[in-house]
């Protein structure tokens, strides 16, 4: 299931890649252009992806089992990551980091007081370390200005 999905996704990606690569100029053999190497890579990639799809149907690689609850926790973590990426430009770093850590900890099994305490400390400490000490221009957010 997992393997077949991954193999099909990569096959689709190789197809898109190859189609795009064929649109780039290959140049001549003595003066290879921007499309020369991508063509080879795209052909090779499509071939091995196709072979992988075939293999995943005929002789699937066993994947480690995932419990329903485990899968939910993985999806929640991914949702938190995606939420961070979406929120960062709007809410700015300190608030986004606070919400990210607190939400994730709560979902992974911590109580609200503990989750909020750790999140507050993590957001402030990381902001102080990266933005103030190391000079990383972390976004302050459109809402804050």
């Amino acid at each position: 299931m997992l393997e077949r999905g991954l193999a099909l996704a990569l096959l689709a990606a190789s197809g898109v890649y190859l189609a795009h690569a064929l649109g780039l100029s290959p140049g001549t053999a003595a003066r290879p252009g921007p499309g020369f190497f991508p063509r080879w890579v795209g052909t090779f990639g499509t071939a091995v992806a196709l072979a992988w799809v075939a293999l995943s149907v005929r002789r699937p690689t066993p994947s480690a089992p995932v419990s329903r609850e485990g899968l939910r926790r993985v999806l929640a973590t991914l949702a938190a990551l995606a939420g961070y990426c979406l929120l960062l430009p709007w809410a700015g770093y300190p608030l986004t980091a606070l919400l990210f850590v607190a939400g994730l900890l709560r979902r992974l099994g911590a109580g609200w007081p503990g989750a909020l305490a750790v999140a507050l400390a993590a957001a402030l400490a990381s902001y102080a370390l990266f933005a103030l000490l190391l000079g990383v221009p972390l976004p302050r957010g459109a809402l804050v200005g």
Binding site: A7, L10, P38, V41, G42, F44, G45, W52
Partner: peptide, 8 residues
């Protein structure tokens, strides 16, 4: 497959 993906 991973080599191809990396090269791409």
């Amino acid at each position: 497959v991973l080599v191809a993906l990396g090269l791409a």
